[in-house]
């Protein structure tokens, strides 16, 4: 991942804006899509990418973001179903090589992993982190 990638991020909430700022700082070309323009306030002053206002569930909005040319598509809205749909559209219709969706619900996540959608579940990651912290804590006490 050393060379510059073209990355589309759908959803400019806490996770989306954090990723957009960080990836832009690393020198990647980033386009962020959100249906609420006010959310772009979360982008840092150094953010060098572009923003598109619109509902990414409309294919037309994804085309405006030039999703067809993207190397990577990240679905980071607050809605599992939106992310799951966007990931599949980015992969199947726009043929983006690397697509990742955030999915809170672990049971939904496992179904879509079987369908070939790459997902990251904050719920599952937190559970693992808690368990690791418990193990460390109890090891420290022993």
């Amino acid at each position: 991942m050393s060379s510059s990638l073209y990355i589309v991020i759908a959803g400019c909430g806490r996770l989306g804006s954090l990723l957009a700022n960080e990836l832009s700082r690393q020198g990647h070309s980033v386009v962020v899509v959100d249906r609420n323009e006010a959310k772009f306030a979360g982008l840092s002053a150094e953010f060098g990418g572009f923003t598109v206002v619109g509902d990414a569930v409309e294919s037309d909005v994804l085309r405006q973001a030039k999703t067809g040319q993207a190397d990577c598509f990240l679905a980071t809205t607050n809605y599992d179903n939106v992310n799951l749909m966007l990931a599949q559209v980015a992969k199947t219709v726009f043929r983006v090589p690397l697509v990742i969706a955030r999915v809170f619900d672990p049971s939904r996540e496992s179904v879509y992993q079987q369908l070939g959608v790459a997902t990251i579940s904050p719920t599952r990651l937190s559970a693992l982190a808690f368990q690791a912290a418990i193990q460390q804590g109890s090891a420290g006490q022993a």
């Binding site: 569930v57 179903n81 799951l84 749909m85 599949q88």
Partner: peptide, 8 residues
Amino acid sequence: PHDEDNLV
């Protein structure tokens, strides 16, 4: 009325 909910 939500396409994404219908799909999932």
